[in-house]
């Protein structure tokens, strides 16, 4: 097994490189992704190696990045669109929900919308306004789209390749605050399918489900909980639409309690969906209702305050206490 240690940014870069190498129809398009290599350097060096026709520096118009990717998909190309920041995806929202999500259906399958929209999402980098958003639920809500989120370099490396190869349009959420954290990457084979849940830690008392940047926080909370005598089972949802619920159900049938964690506000969110589905499926096993840990229902705060907004170890453990307290 060939494993190597790299950052998530590098893993994405390597994954994109491999996809470009393996399929000539794969293109990258986005703002400043060429010479600059993207504001996060995810595409660093790719334009130099694959040319300006395949790694396309675009004018500044997100709707056009996605809209032209639709035309390219109709022509048989697989375009990976980079949205520079989560908060800049909204100009492309119309194209994504009106066209990308619907054209396969409207053409009775004649159009394959094999495009990937990369979204550096969630906060935690001390940025300014519009650079720390978690818009995943808008897209998960839209039939015709799929939404995934990576949380480790290994997943980043494999999931981006799996997403590009997939025939459905995929919103690919990258936790930008974890871009520079290192991890082991297995270059030979992926650990999971693109739409599969991964168990990150075994436990017996409470199942904690999260995705993206929250995973690291959850694992830290699990360490602390263990020192307090509470055993957390930690699950990385990875696929936000569709949700891979069975492994979560198995876990909750064991623990009888669960907590969901996300940076987005919880109103009509991934956490809401998880609580609804898992309550329905695990009703007879539940010792306590599922509890959501999330961002507050306010516009993302100035980032001097963001650590009080994002789910922290304290807030996760507080939720764990609450579900543990239900049966006394």
């Amino acid at each position: 097994m060939a494993t190597t240690t790299m950052t998530m940014a590098k893993a994405l870069n390597e994954g994109l490189r491999r996809a470009l190498e393996e399929d000539k129809k794969v293109l990258l398009m986005g703002e400043d992704i060429g010479k600059l290599g993207g504001v996060f350097r995810i595409t660093d060096g790719l334009q130099k190696d694959f040319g300006e026709d395949r790694v396309i520096d675009s004018p500044l118009a997100e709707s056009a990045i996605v809209g032209t990717a639709v035309g390219l998909a109709i022509r048989g190309y697989r375009t990976v669109c980079e949205m520079q920041f989560d908060g800049f995806v909204y100009p492309a929202f119309d194209q994504i929900v009106s066209q990308v999500a619907k054209l396969h259906k409207r053409s009775d399958g004649a159009y394959v919308m094999g495009l990937v929209i990369r979204l550096p999402f969630q906060g935690g980098i001390g940025a300014i306004e519009h650079h720390s958003e978690s818009p995943e639920a808008y897209f998960a809500h839209t039939a015709g789209l799929r939404v995934v989120a990576c949380s480790t370099p290994n997943d980043a490396y494999w999931m981006i390749q799996q997403a590009i190869a997939h025939d459905d349009p995929i919103i690919f959420c990258e936790p930008k605050s974890r871009y520079w954290e290192k991890g082991e990457v297995d270059l030979d084979r992926p650990s999971h399918g693109l739409f599969e849940t991964a168990r990150r830690r075994e436990g017996t008392d409470v199942t904690v489900i999260g995705y993206g940047a929250s995973m690291k926080t959850i694992l830290r909370a699990a360490d602390t909980a263990a020192s307090e005598g509470v055993s957390l089972e930690v699950i990385d949802a990875r696929s936000l639409s569709p949700l891979d619920l069975d492994p979560m159900v198995t876990s909750i049938q064991k623990t009888g309690r669960f907590v969901t964690v996300q940076e987005a506000p919880h109103m009509a969110s991934i956490g809401s969906e998880l609580v609804a589905e898992l309550t329905q499926r695990c009703f007879y096993s539940l010792r306590a209702p599922g509890v959501r840990v999330s961002g507050y229902h306010v516009p993302y705060p100035p980032t001097r305050l963001e650590e009080d907004y994002r789910p922290s170890v304290d807030r996760i453990l507080d939720a764990v206490d609450r579900v543990m307290g239900f049966e006394g």
């Binding site: 293109l27 026709d53 395949r54 709707s63 056009a64 996605v66 809209g67 032209t68 990717a69 639709v70 035309g71 390219l72 998909a73 109709i74 022509r75 048989g76 190309y77 375009t79 119309d94 194209q95 009106s98 066209q99």
Partner: peptide, 17 residues
């Protein structure tokens, strides 16, 4: 308006082909 971008994207595909 959406379709005008699809047309340009398709045209970019023609260029690449």
């Amino acid at each position: 308006g959406n379709q005008a971008l699809h047309a340009v994207g398709y045209a970019m595909g023609i260029q690449r082909d």
